[in-house]
């Protein structure tokens, strides 16, 4: 699972552009991640300019 720090996110959409699964949606000033379709590639985590995304602890390793 990817968790979002909404206090950091600047809703720029960079993460959306690199998500191969189309799992992220930028809704105006809000991003949503669909955990069901996420394939845990971590592209979004690495690309975010501000480090607002993290792999959260519950994720199955």
């Amino acid at each position: 699972m990817i968790s979002i720090n909404r206090y950091k996110c600047g809703y720029c959409g960079t993460c959306v552009a690199v998500c191969p699964a189309g799992a992220i949606e930028l809704v105006g000033a809000w991003i949503e991640i669909d955990g069901e379709s996420c394939v845990e590639c971590n592209n979004c985590v690495k690309i975010c300019p501000i480090g607002a995304l993290e792999v959260s602890d519950e994720s199955k390793k």
Binding site: C12, G13, T14, A17, P20, G22, N43, K46, I47, P49
Partner: peptide, 26 residues
Amino acid sequence: DGVESKVGRWAGINTTLKPKDIESGA
């Protein structure tokens, strides 16, 4: 619809960018 474009994807055009093909900016 900009960098976060979905319109292409909905029509079956793969517009996903590889990390080597996008600059992350602040």
